[in-house]
Design a protein around this nucleic acid. Structure first.
Lengths: 219, 219
DNA sequence: TATTGTGAAGCCTTTCACAGCA
DNA sequence: TGCTGTGAAAGGCTTCACAATA
């Protein structure tokens, strides 16, 4: 049964998926250091989680270890990447080329993984081109938002990053849905809803800051 | 008992704190629209949660509603802000003034809330000053990282935003601890640990993207 | 009467403890 | 022998259902 993705359980906790992502980051590092084998206890220790948790998380997807030994670092890394769907390139667009949007255009960590920004949109592209070209290593031309649907199809865009002001977020989300872009990473601090079959994940800096503020006020 | 923050339970779920932040965003909006009263069902509907959840979340901190009526929008908003510790200004520093760091320097949503960036640091400030000044409305001078401790005390910095490359994150975190900056928002995709009494919250874009990638691959 | 506040139930996640196995 | 994989226990969070009450 080794290495077989069998999905015995239908519903996998979101926390498990987040931890897989964390394990992959740690394994990547170990791999770089030339480490060959790792036990659940060592990996858990490195990722600051419980060892049984590591084994349970992996058990949702199959059997990847060797009893008495542990896990082969590179094998496990590749398995986790496959589970997460990272064994392909994900083609993304950024919508809203302000400060945050243009920072994301040259965000190094996307490149290291299989995330590639292949298009950029704004309501006011000419104003913006100069600002972007001067900052981005490998420049992406900023197009007018009204070309989203056409270009999304052409460039096979699968994920949209919303970095507009919050007032525009739902509007942009609607256009992404219209363009059949199934995944949305929403940086604009506004609730956005999409139909079934589409996914939104929020990245709200202030929500996390609020969390910090609460903890700092009460500890 | 109305409006009393009594903390009957010692341990409040982190999810509750995140939802309070969400409620406050919705209430802010309602307040802006001039709405005076809201029921838990209406607020829940707006925030896409369960109505009992709203009441339970609030019950951790006291009694804020009127049976048969609901909650006064502005009163509840102020109460939640007080609970979260947002009835004060939080003074922050950004460390690592690359693309992301300088985007955060002019991030509008911080200003709207009580988060204020009062200092910016980098290993290589001169190179960077030009790049920043041209982008930031109200400029913050970028200082050399070796002035962190001194300036943190001077400007009463309570939260540090790490936007360096991942290899530097732990090092910067150590310096923040040394400077007694109790809260850290870590944007660098690397595990960072701090002593008891200090707090780190991670903002890892790629972890959330990994989550999206998984969902898109399996739905 | 309408809606809150809350005990209890239900559900989900984590951790324990050990059988199973290389 | 030592570490994985997993059933069972423990723990925690969410939802239900209704008593309390403005």
């Amino acid at each position: 049964m080794k290495g077989v993705t069998k999905l015995k359980y239908t519903k996998i906790p979101e926390a498990t998926i987040r931890r897989l992502s964390r394990y992959s980051r740690c394994l990547e590092e170990m791999n770089g250091l030339g480490e060959k084998v790792v036990s659940s206890a060592q990996l858990a220790n490195k990722c600051l989680v419980n060892a049984a948790q590591v084994r349970k998380d992996l058990a949702y997807f199959g059997e990847f270890g060797i009893r008495g030994v542990g896990y082969y670092v590179n094998d496990l890394l590749q398995d986790i990447k496959r589970i997460l769907g990272l064994n392909k390139e994900w083609r993304m667009a950024v919508i809203g080329i302000g400060n945050l949007g243009s920072a994301l255009l040259s965000y190094k960590d996307f490149l290291k993984q299989n995330y590639k920004i292949v298009a950029a949109f704004d309501i006011d592209p000419p104003k913006v081109i100069g600002r972007v070209s001067e900052k981005v290593g490998k420049p992406v031309e900023v197009l007018h938002i009204n070309r989203l649907k056409e270009v999304a199809k052409e460039r096979r865009i699968e994920i949209g990053l919303i970095t507009t002001p919050p007032s525009e977020a739902q509007n942009v989300a609607n256009q992404l849905v219209e363009a059949e872009v199934k995944g949305i990473l929403n940086f604009a601090p506004a609730q956005v809803t999409v139909p079934d079959g589409y996914m939104v994940k929020d990245v709200f800096f202030t929500t996390i800051l609020d969390n910090l503020a609460y903890l700092l006020s009460n500890n």
